[in-house]
Write a protein that binds this DNA or RNA. Structure first.
Lengths: 240, 240
DNA sequence: CGTACGTTTGACTCTGTTCAATTGCCGTGG
DNA sequence: CCACGGCAATTGAACAGAGTCAAACGTACG
C-alpha cells in the first residue's frame, strides 16, 4: 500500500490538472469537478520499482496516474508472469479488483510516479448524484475491456513483428494525446516486459526491433525510439 | 438487431428465473428484482447462426443470455478473426460497446437461444436508486476484465495443450455452476472457433484433443467431451 | 571505476503452422 | 430409404517462426 507522503503543498486538484480531460473528470461541470476533488484529495508518490498494489491484498481504491508510468502483471503458480498492461498519465488502475475486492495483479512503477487515490466506495456513492460521472466511469471500464480484446487479437493472431508494430503505434498515440511527440519517445520498460506483454521472448522483441530498424522504419537506441515512417509501420500490421 | 418475437406467454421474469443468482439480479431484494423486471421486460429468441449484434452498429442494450450459447469475435481489416468470448446462461453481452456506444464485435448464437434485453440507459438510471444493483454491475464489468487478463495469460505464455486444458476446465466449471455435469458435456463450437479463441489453428486443437484422449485424461467423440481425470487435466496447466 | 543488468546477435531446436489427404457426420433431395 | 454433397474433424509430412542456449557488448548505477 502506498505511503502517506504529503503532497498537499503542490496544487494538485482535478480542476487545475492538465490531464483532466484524459481522466475521471471528463465531461463534468465546475461544481461536479469540485465534488470529485474532495473525493480524490489524497495523492501519493511511488518511487520507481515500488508497488502501487499487490495481488491478494484488499482493494479499497482505484488510482489515477498523475505522473509517471506503471506496469501491471499477474503471476501463475509456477512463476510465469504475464504483463497485462502499461499505464500512463490519466489512466486508471485497479479496475480488475472491483470484482472480488481483492487485487488480482501487481502494479509497479516503472519510473518515479504520482497517483491520485480514488476511494471506490465513495466514488460509487458520488456517482449516484452525478450521472455524468457514473456514465463516464462505465465508459472507462468498457474501454478497458475493448483494450483487452485488442490485446487478445494481437496475442491470438499476429506475428512477432506485427505485435511490436501494433505496440509502438499504440504507445505513439498515447504519448501524442498527452502532448508529447508521437514519433520520438523513450520506453520505460525493458525488452523482457515488452515481451511478456506481447507474448514473446525478449530476444524475439530485440530481433523485431532490429528488423524494423534495418528497414529504416524506426531507429532504436536502447530505450530511445524514433519512428521515421509511420505509414510503413502501420503497414506492418494486418498485411500478413 | 434482434427481432421482436413475442415470448410473453412464458413466465420469463427475473423473479422466477432459475439463473437469477448468476445474472444481474444477484443480491437484490424482492422489491428491487421487481423493478429490474420492469426494465428487462423484453426478451427475444435468436436462432442458431443469427447475430445478436454486429460490430459497427449502434449500442442501446446489454443482453443477458437466458438460454443458449453465443460467441463474440472481432475482425481485422485483413479478414483475420479473433473469438473474444463464449457466453452461456446468465452471462452478459455488450459490455464492450458502452465505451463508444457502438458495438465493437459481432455476437452470434451457436445454438438456438433466448436473451433478455437490458436497455442500458435505463439500467444506469435505475442503478442510481438501487446501490446494490450498481455495485453488482460494476463487479460484473470488473469480472470481465479479470477474465480477459486470464485469457491474456493463456495466449501469452501457455503451450497448446495447456491452453486447451485451461479452456476445458473453465467450461467444466461454468457448466457445473449451471447445474450440468462438470465432466460430461457437449461443445457448442467448432475446432476452428476454439482455435481462434485459444490462438491456435484448428489442426493444433484437434491434435491436442487427441493427445489428451491418448493419455486417458478425457474422451472425445466429436463435440462430446468426457473428462475422466480432472486432477491430471489440472496438472496439464502450469507444469511446463 | 567496476559490476550487474539489459540488450543484441548467432546457431540450433522445437512447437505449431501449412498443405494435403482421408474419414465421419448430417441434412437434403432424388 | 438411400445416395450424394458439404462441412467438420482427424492425421501425416514438410516447413517456418519463435524459443532456447550461449556469448559478447553496452549502459547505468552504485
Amino acid at each position: 500500500m502506498p505511503k502517506n507522503n504529503d503532497m498537499s503543498s503542490v496544487n494538485t486538484n482535478c480542476a487545475s490538472c492538465s490531464f483532466r480531460e484524459l481522466c475521471l473528470p471528463l465531461g463534468l461541470n465546475e461544481r461536479e469537478v469540485e465534488m470529485l476533488d474532495d473525493l480524490v484529495s489524497h495523492k501519493c508518490k511511488i518511487q520507481r520499482g515500488e508497488f502501487l498494489h499487490r495481488a491478494g491484498l484488499n482493494f479499497q481504491s482505484l488510482y489515477a496516474v498523475r505522473r509517471g508510468f506503471f506496469k501491471t502483471y499477474i503471476l501463475e503458480k509456477d512463476g510465469r508472469q504475464q504483463v497485462t498492461g502499461f499505464f500512463m498519465t490519466g489512466e486508471l488502475l485497479g479496475l480488475d479488483a472491483i470484482s472480488t475486492e481483492i487485487h488480482t495483479c501487481d502494479a509497479v512503477a516503472l519510473e518515479d510516479s504520482e497517483v491520485c487515490e480514488v476511494p471506490f466506495a465513495r466514488l460509487e456513492e458520488m456517482s449516484r448524484n452525478i450521472p455524468t460521472l457514473m456514465h463516464h466511469f462505465h465508459k472507462i471500464m468498457s474501454r478497458e475491456i475493448v483494450k483487452d480484446h485488442g490485446v487478445m487479437m494481437l496475442l491470438g493472431s499476429m506475428k512477432a513483428e506485427e505485435r511490436l508494430a501494433t505496440f509502438l503505434i499504440n504507445l505513439s498515440r498515447r504519448f501524442f494525446k498527452r502532448g508529447y511527440s508521437s514519433s520520438d519517445f523513450v520506453l520505460r520498460m525493458t525488452r523482457e516486459e515488452i515481451g511478456s506483454y506481447l507474448g514473446l521472448k525478449l530476444e524475439t522483441v530485440s530481433r523485431a526491433f532490429s528488423r524494423l530498424q534495418d528497414e529504416d522504419i524506426i531507429s532504436v537506441d536502447n530505450k530511445h525510439i524514433n519512428i521515421h515512417d509511420m505509414d510503413r509501420l502501420r503497414n506492418k500490421v494486418g498485411n500478413s
